[in-house]
């Protein structure tokens, strides 16, 4: 009862999920998920490399190199890794939307129907 209530409160909200599941094919859902996992694996490898790799495990070795007045390992541990973290999130946010559109599973209301029509035809 309250679900109905909330869905009708906002006029321009996307339709409830059970409706969409009927129009997204299993193959699209599976393909999307595989592509998503591949992208996650790539980005998390970078995440691990800059923090645990360069900042901790390899920090002593990297310290022999100088970078803008810092020892390189120290710089990664106290500055560099944080910048890379920020970049990783925005790269993911951008690239996953492209993948979503390709499989017609994105969350943009106006495009949902168009994408699904294409998938069905």
């Amino acid at each position: 009862m309250s679900e109905q209530h909330y869905h009708h409160q906002g006029e321009n909200l996307p339709p409830p999920s059970h409706h969409d599941q009927q129009v997204i094919t299993d193959a699209a859902a599976k393909g999307y998920w595989r592509a998503n996992l591949r992208l996650l694996a790539q980005l998390l490898t970078v995440w691990f490399a800059v923090s645990f790799g360069f900042g901790i495990l390899l920090a002593d070795w990297l310290d022999q190199f100088s970078f803008f007045g810092f020892k390189l390992g120290f710089w990664f541990a106290q500055q560099g890794a944080i910048y890379v973290f920020v970049a990783l999130i925005f790269i993911y946010a951008r690239r996953i939307v492209v993948i979503e559109r390709r499989f017609g599973v994105d969350d943009d209301d106006r495009d949902v129907d168009a994408a699904n029509d294409q998938g069905a035809s």
Binding site: S2, E3, Y6, H7, Q9, G10, L13, P14, P15, P16, S17, H19, D20, Q21, I24, A29, Y32, W33, N36, E100, V105, D106, D107, V112
Partner: peptide, 16 residues
């Protein structure tokens, strides 16, 4: 689980 993996149709936070 299948449903939460797909971004389409998130709607607003709701009760059941």
């Amino acid at each position: 689980v299948d449903d939460i993996r797909i971004p389409t149709g998130a709607g607003v936070a709701h009760e059941h």
